[in-house]
Write a protein that binds this DNA or RNA. Structure first.
Length: 494
RNA sequence: GGCCCCUUGGUCAAGCGGUCAAGACACCGCCCUUUCACGGCGGUAACGGGGGUUCGAGUCCCCCAGGGGUCACCA
């Protein structure tokens, strides 16, 4: 069995988006499972579009997801360089080989010439194909024009008939008629190769065994195969992954919200969750399990179970999955996840990490994302500025609300120690004495202490909050209710 | 427009000639319960359409429709 070598080869024109991330992930899983190598290569032959910092973004995205590579521009490797912009000599070498063997030729047609041909074709409702004018040029003529300094591109001589079959591991044999292709350009007039030529040379010289890439490349593959054959290169295996589509079934783009892994990172998603979600978007094991860790995925991964049809991503499911991972996270890592924002908001400092941690433990399994969790934490660190509107109507609106809170205030003020268990006992006992339901005391108290109607268990919450805060917030709520009766149902909130 | 790929519930997706067509997210009930989540139980919901092949088709073949991709001196 030959050595498995796969690559992820992004162009550095933007951030790492989830489609690219999934492609990288599948390559990574395949390499790791097979004991092969995962190679990162930057495709930056288009200098007008390439930007240094966006390659950086991709590298960071992959690292954050935990997809490590064995060879790449930053760490080198035996078959480098791993940046196309540094591989000019290699391309020139093979370009020359093709020229020498007569399988490629210089073309001096100007972009204007071609544009004209295109327009003519359009007028006659013909599909445009390069006419092949320069294909007939004699070598002497060509070198003369070259001498004269005329700009030239290099075109591949493609077979006029026959078929080119792409053996695809996911889709089976896909056949294309060669008559469809014209003598396409393999080197631009600046001397740099076009994409199709560069990938072929790179994949061959980096000894890539499997090209696992997005479906958008399928239509290009026959052209690449033609180049492999012209060069006499051994061909790798191909597998084309279906695309990830936006919820409206269109191609993913910025207008669809968060699509780069950087954005998910910034929103506080966990990399494990994103990896797990992406893995299952287009691949399945056939088993009824949704949560897979890296090792399990690695073990189970198989090209045969990759889906052929495009997948629409669903943020709800990602959020659910993130919640699953949040629940499994140990408290130290959870604290680390929360710390930056918490510090920024002044919720976490040198002396209150115990308090912070207690609050986190209470709310943690009520939130699916970091931001949700942060949101659920507010009243532990800030005074209650507003009471939930519906809650006010329901729990503060009635005449007895003051009475209830006064009772609670009395209980709370007289507590010796302030544990959840004791508080609960005191509440229930008092409720019994008053011949009311404990809930009648609990609901207004929750609203008074948190401003909300949905919180963790009230008694745990009180224990963490502490007696002092409980008393002051109860008093404040009593004042609020008093104002409510003076100001009418709208209340001082408005 | 030419060429290529794809088509099972709203979404992911199992299925690889014979199943009452799994499961998960979401949604809706119920249970647990001081609220909310978690958890448990149950429910609504799918083979794009039409022809074949076959005793039998979601599974095989053909046509149509729809969606996507690609046709650059971009990658």
């Amino acid at each position: 069995m030959r050595n498995i070598r796969v690559r992820f080869a992004p162009s550095p024109t933007g951030a790492l988006h989830i489609g690219g991330a999934r492609t990288a992930l599948y390559n990574w899983l395949f390499a790791r499972q097979q004991g092969g190598k995962f190679i990162l290569r930057i495709e930056d032959t288009d200098f007008r579009r390439s930007r240094e910092d966006s390659a950086q973004g991709i590298v960071e995205g992959l690292s954050w997801l935990g997809l490590d590579w064995d060879e790449g521009p930053d760490i080198g490797g035996p078959l480098g360089p791993y940046r196309q912009s540094e591989r000019g000599d290699i391309y020139s070498h093979y370009l020359q080989e093709l020229l020498d063997s007569g399988r490629a030729y210089y073309c001096f047609c100007t972009p204007e010439d071609l544009q004209k041909e295109r327009e003519e074709a359009a007028q006659e409702k013909r599909d445009y194909k390069y006419g092949g004018r320069c294909r007939a040029l004699k070598p002497e003529e060509a070198s003369e024009m070259l001498q004269a300094g005329k700009p030239a591109v290099i075109r591949l001589k493609v077979p006029l008939d026959g078929n080119t079959i792409v053996p695809d591991l996911i889709r089976g044999d896909v056949s294309f008629s060669n008559a469809l292709f014209d003598d396409f350009i393999i080197a631009k007039s600046d001397g740099w190769p076009t994409y199709n030529f560069a990938v072929v040379v790179d994949d061959f010289s980096m000894q890539i065994s499997h090209v696992l890439r997005a479906e958008e490349h399928l239509s290009n593959t026959p052209r690449q195969l033609l180049i492999y054959r012209a060069l006499g290169f051994k061909e790798p295996s191909f597998a084309h992954l279906s695309m990830i589509l936006a919820p409206d079934r269109s191609k993913l783009s910025k207008r669809h919200g968060a699509i780069s892994v950087q954005e998910f990172k910034n929103q506080g998603y966990l990399p494990e969750a994103l990896v797990n979600y992406l893995a299952l978007l287009g691949w399945s094991t056939g088993k009824d399990i949704d949560i897979w860790n890296r090792e399990e995925m690695m073990r189970e991964f198989s090209l045969e179970h990759i889906s052929k049809s495009p997948a629409i991503y669903d943020l709800e499911k990602l959020a659910w999955m993130n919640g699953q991972y949040m629940m499994r996270l140990d408290i130290e890592n959870l604290m680390t996840l929360l710390a930056p924002q918490a510090r920024q908001r002044g919720w976490l400092n040198e002396d209150n990490s115990d308090y912070f941690q207690q609050a986190v433990e209470l709310v943690r399994n009520r939130a699916k994302t970091r931001d949700e969790l942060l949101d659920a934490l507010g009243y532990f660190f800030e005074e209650v500025k507003q009471y939930d509107e519906k809650g006010v109507k329901k729990h503060f609106g009635q005449q007895k609300a003051s009475t209830m809170l006064s009772e609670v205030l009395e209980i709370v003020s007289n507590m010796g120690s302030f544990s959840a268990a004791e508080l609960e006992e005191a509440f229930r006992q008092r409720a019994q004495e008053l011949e009311i339901k404990a809930a009648d005391l609990i609901h207004p108290t929750r609203l008074a202490l948190s401003g909300r109607t949905a919180t963790p268990g009230l008694f745990e919450l009180m224990e963490v909050l502490g007696q002092e805060k409980c008393i002051s917030r109860l008093e404040k709520a009593l004042v609020f209710i008093a104002q409510l009766t003076t100001h009418g149902p709208e209340g001082p909130n408005h």
